[in-house]
């Protein structure tokens, strides 16, 4: 099934070099475009918005290309079926940690959350461990991490990833302690989920590179309009919204801003690509880091459509516990970072 052969692999180092070269010249290019080609006045609002847009858009898109390609290759080593086999029969605690970590690298689409849930639970993966996976898989995803890396820097990206995994471990563990197994719909346990013979996934490297390319086509092809639109709104906020405008609304002194951000974020269903550039601009205008983090986690990690899908297999009490426990974790992260920074 090799779409390309070994011989064509030399192209990749060359492409990487080109990538580095283009990336290095993005700053000078944005400056030249704004003040040279478009002859805008330095310091004007429009110029600062245009320069921001001309710099950030290609930067984030380039980072997306590279990281999505890399993650696509990494993910070719992990399938949900293999992850299930690793997690089946694990004890809690260590199982929660493992599930949260595997959640970050296993390909996951909320459209197959139901078969995945059934497959895990009937294979003997404890309920809490299953939830650790279900929390970390959507929350810590490559698109969110790339946007955070590009727009906020590596520290915020690392904090988001670390606390995201921590929330997944803690909420899965808590759900395990609450003994809510009885609140899984009864038919789930009657379902016979075979651990059938699955296709041999021993891929050769050219196949893995092809998987990376496919990921770029699928993911970057889908999110780029949101990235561009999000950065455009962010650029307008950068140029036109006065400094410290958000301080009273989303600043540290407003204690209620963290719960408000979480409450607002849960029903919002926006992909990370659209929301992160806007939120980054707000941070610049005086919003507090913890509040901003809490908002992003609530938007990305707890989505209404996913809970609606999961309602098929979970009774309302368990759905409520899931939202409550994860929401509390996000609140704690929000307050923690508002105190620390």
């Amino acid at each position: 099934m090799a779409v390309m052969d070994w011989k064509s692999l030399w192209k990749w180092p060359a492409a990487l070099l080109l990538w580095v070269a283009v990336y290095a010249y993005l700053g000078p290019f944005a400056g030249w475009l704004t003040y040279g080609a478009l002859a805008m006045r330095r310091g004007s609002r429009l110029a600062s918005a245009v320069e921001f847009f001309a710099f950030e858009t290609p930067k984030v898109l380039l980072l997306l290309l590279l990281v999505v390609f890399g993650v696509g290759i990494v993910r070719s080593f992990f399938t949900p079926e293999r992850t299930r086999r690793i997690l089946a029969g694990r004890r809690e605690s260590a199982g929660n940690v493992l599930a949260a970590l595997l959640g970050t690298v296993t390909p996951f689409c909320s459209c197959s959350a139901v078969p995945l849930f059934i497959g895990f639970v009937t294979a003997g993966v404890p309920l809490g461990v299953t939830f650790s996976f279900l929390v970390s898989a959507p929350m810590v995803n490559e698109v969110a991490v790339v946007l955070l890396l590009g727009l906020f820097g590596w520290k915020v990206a690392a904090i988001y990833t670390g606390t995201g995994v921590a929330i997944a471990v803690a909420s899965g563990w808590t759900i395990g302690r609450l003994r809510l197994e009885g609140h899984v719909e009864d038919w789930v346990f009657r379902t016979h989920a075979a651990d059938a013979e699955l296709p041999d996934e021993r891929l050769a490297w050219p196949d893995r590179v092809a998987a990376g390319r496919q990921a770029v086509r699928d993911i970057v092809g889908k999110v780029w309009p949101y990235v561009v639109a999000g950065i455009a709104v962010g650029a307008a906020i950068h140029g036109y919204v006065p400094e410290n405008f958000m301080a009273s609304l989303m600043g540290k002194s407003a204690w209620w801003s963290v719960p408000a951000a979480v409450a607002l974020g849960i029903p919002m269903y926006s992909n990370a690509a659209g929301i992160i550039p806007i939120v980054q601009a707000l941070l610049d205008k005086g919003a507090a880091l913890g509040t901003v983090l809490a908002f992003m986690m609530a938007v990305i990690g707890l989505s209404l459509p996913e809970t609606v899908i999961l309602r098929k297999v979970l009774k309302p009490t368990l759905i409520a516990a899931f939202i409550g426990v994860v929401g509390t974790g996000i609140l704690a992260v929000g307050y923690l970072f508002n105190v620390l920074f």
């Binding site: 689409c109 078969p115 038919w187 379902t191 075979a194 699955l198």
Partner: peptide, 11 residues
């Protein structure tokens, strides 16, 4: 869904 999982498929 029950039929899908009976094949051992979860994604």
């Amino acid at each position: 869904i029950a039929q899908i999982t009976s094949f051992g498929v979860i994604s």
